[in-house]
Simulated assay, not measured.
Amino acid sequence: SLQQLTSDENIRFMLRERIDNMNHEMKPTQSRDVNIAIQFWKRMDMLLRLDYWGNLDLARPLPVLSALSRTSCPRAVAALAVELFPEQQHCQVDHNLPLHVACTNPSPGAMVEVLASPESAGTRTFQGRYPLHVALHTGALTWNSGVAALWKSFPLDGSPHDKVTDLPALLLACNPDPQIKQQKIRYHAARVRPGMWRFLQSSAKQQSLQSSKHTIELEHLETVFEILRADPSVLRSL
């Protein structure tokens, strides 16, 4: 069945890759063509349902923005989704806004930047956490992959502490979740050589992973530096 088929992690990864690549079908000259947009979205909707629920139950309302926030969503798709479902930006699914979901995704694409309005970026989770705190605690985002957009929309002036860890943003950025970090390293290594990863020899994979580890560590270090530069007063709270 489709549900059994899509329960396989490899199949789900392929679906997410397909979602990542579908924005190439939206040519700039076609973006205003309503018929093309409708056909495009019908296919996108089916892929999202398979990825989010593992089935094609069309009668069940799909939280599109939350579903896209779990993928590496390109800007063209993210912008189209927000245009089609603007009300979902502020609708919680399992006590989380789509932005909260995107902040836990090591590769959210453009979803964080598109969703990071002042209202959403200033909305706490049921645990009392701001999206920025969620992103930094998990280590899913770096300065250039979403933290800058969150800070710009809702700067945490005075560095209010995270409700869960009781740490300011700077210290959260210094201690990213090691499991998320490993996921980012593997994802980065695979994306550097798209379509070739499974065919690489073990030595080549290890070399690629080491290079990706260095890149990810530099990105996290840059995040710490940029937060410190954006809010030097955080040093007084340490």
Rank of each mutant, 00 (worst) to 15 (best):
L172Y: 05
P108E: 09
N175E: 14
K184V: 10
R129G: 09
L200S: 10
V192N: 08
D231Q: 12
S72P: 01
R186L: 15
W151N: 05
L65T: 02
S7Y: 01
R60Q: 12
Q183Y: 13
H90A: 10
L50A: 06
P63S: 00
V192R: 12
G109K: 01
A169S: 13
R49H: 03
E87G: 01
P108S: 09
R236F: 14
H161L: 15
P155R: 03
T125D: 08
L156E: 15
A230I: 00
S72Y: 04
H161W: 08
S202G: 11
E119V: 13
S208F: 11
R60V: 07
T165R: 12
F40C: 02
T104Y: 09
M26C: 10
E217D: 13
N105V: 03
L136K: 04
I185G: 04
S7N: 06
L58K: 07
V64T: 09
L58Y: 09
K205R: 09
L136Q: 03
T223K: 12
M14N: 07
T223H: 07
V112T: 05
H188F: 10
F13G: 00
S66H: 14
S237E: 07
I227P: 03
A110N: 03
L115R: 04
Q206P: 00
Q210T: 14
G146Y: 03
H214N: 10
T6K: 03
A230V: 02
W151Q: 07
L156T: 12
L218R: 13
R43Q: 12
T142A: 09
M44V: 12
W151V: 05
T6Q: 05
M111L: 06
F40S: 00
L171S: 06
E217K: 12
Y130I: 10
R198K: 15
A76K: 08
L68R: 02
L200P: 07
R18E: 09
L132Y: 03
D33W: 15
L84A: 09
M22C: 07
P232I: 05
V82H: 03
I38P: 01
W41G: 00
L68S: 05
S1F: 15
K27P: 01
E222H: 14
Q206M: 12
S211H: 14
I38F: 05
E119M: 13
E222K: 15
D157S: 13
D231F: 08
R124M: 13
V224R: 11
L167C: 06
R198S: 15
I38W: 04
G139C: 07
Q92S: 14
Y187E: 14
A67W: 05
P131Y: 05
G128Q: 08
S159N: 14
P118A: 04
N55T: 10
S202K: 13
C174V: 13
F85I: 03
P178G: 00
A148Y: 00
P98S: 02
R124K: 14
A135L: 06
G146S: 04
R70V: 05
Q3F: 12
E83Y: 11
P106V: 09
W53K: 00
N144C: 08
P63V: 01
L235H: 04
N35E: 15
Q183V: 11
Q183P: 05
L58G: 11
A148K: 10
T165C: 10
V64K: 02
Q3L: 14
T142M: 04
Y130A: 15
P63K: 00
A135D: 05
H95N: 10
N10I: 07
E9H: 10
I227M: 08
R236N: 12
A81K: 01
Q30I: 06
